[in-house]
């Protein structure tokens, strides 16, 4: 069911990871991704995995939740893996049949690439699981603040993002409901060719759009009547402030990246 999608979901908690400033977590995620793409050999990879594992442990997010978040991407991971498996040439030939040859290097790259994608997603999932969307957008807004000088509407973008995240579950629920209602009238979303299927989506998409517009309209009215008038003069209940733990976490992140680069140089 659609409801099982966990993207952008937040699991409230009160762990060290939850308490970190969202800016710290955003930067750490970037560092983590950089490290992930820098690491090409085992030691570096092990370090990145260790970093993620410790973060997950500290956050007390169940591994099961991370895995279920990875589930929708399994096909992408598989395709990447298979492509790498078949198209990487190397020196150590393992199997050869018909026009396909698989090299040991191919196996290695396939595993690394698949792992890399999964680690990438797992890291970002951890970010969204432990950071409320509002904090996340606050953090982004604050990090991107310098862009205001070149007239990028940072506040508006951040507000739009947080509202979009707020309405994802609502719209998913609504999609489920409209789908059931149309199926009760004999709509068939499963069978038929591509064009038939696309056409069959109209009874779902049109009501969904209409409803999204209605919601947007009502939400705008509600926001205005709660005195919203843009970012000017607005304060925040949850002030972002960097604590000791944030600096320590960042230091750990920098260390991670440095080590990974070092390992890459050393080739271990």
């Amino acid at each position: 069911m659609l409801k099982d999608i966990t993207l952008g979901q937040y699991y409230p908690g009160d762990t060290l990871v939850h308490r970190l400033d969202p800016r710290t977590k955003l930067i750490l995620t970037l560092i983590y991704i950089a490290a992930l793409f820098t690491a090409i050999v085992y030691a570096g990879y092990a370090l990145v995995v260790l970093f993620l594992a410790v973060s997950i442990l500290l956050s007390r997010i169940r591994l099961r939740n991370i895995l279920s978040g990875l589930k929708p991407l399994i096909i992408i991971v598989l395709i990447t893996g298979i492509l790498n498996l078949f198209y990487t040439k190397g020196e150590h030939l393992l199997v050869h049949f018909w026009r396909i040859s698989i090299y040991w290097e191919g196996v290695e790259t396939a595993i690394f690439m698949a792992l890399r994608i999964m680690l990438l997603i797992a890291g970002t999932l951890l970010l969204t699981y432990t950071t409320s969307p509002l904090q996340l957008t606050d953090g982004l807004e604050s990090l991107l603040n310098p862009l205001k000088k070149i007239r990028v509407p940072v506040h508006e973008l951040a507000m739009m993002m947080s509202i979009a995240l707020r309405f994802i579950p609502t719209l998913i629920e609504e999609t489920d409901k409209i789908m059931s209602a149309q199926r009760a009238r004999g709509a068939d979303f499963e069978t038929g060719g591509l064009i038939a299927k696309a056409k069959a989506m109209l009874p779902l998409l049109i009501p969904l759009f209409v409803s999204a517009f209605r919601r947007a309209d009502e939400l705008a009215t509600a926001m205005e009547s709660r005195c919203y008038h843009g970012g000017e003069g607005r304060t925040r209940m949850k002030q972002l402030s960097m604590a000791r733990r944030d600096w320590i976490a960042l230091a750990v992140g920098v260390l991670l990246l440095a080590l990974v680069i070092l390992f890459r140089r050393l080739g271990i």
């Binding site: 947080s162 509202i163 707020r166 919601r215 939400l219 509600a222 709660r226 005195c227 304060t235 209940m237």
Partner: peptide, 23 residues
């Protein structure tokens, strides 16, 4: 259609934040 934030208390804070009240 009148709840703006993803967490209850953040939503309640929305109005006062717009009024520029001290955190």
């Amino acid at each position: 259609n009148q709840i703006v934030a993803n967490v209850v208390e953040d939503d309640v804070a929305f109005g006062p934040e717009n009024l520029g009240i001290e955190p």
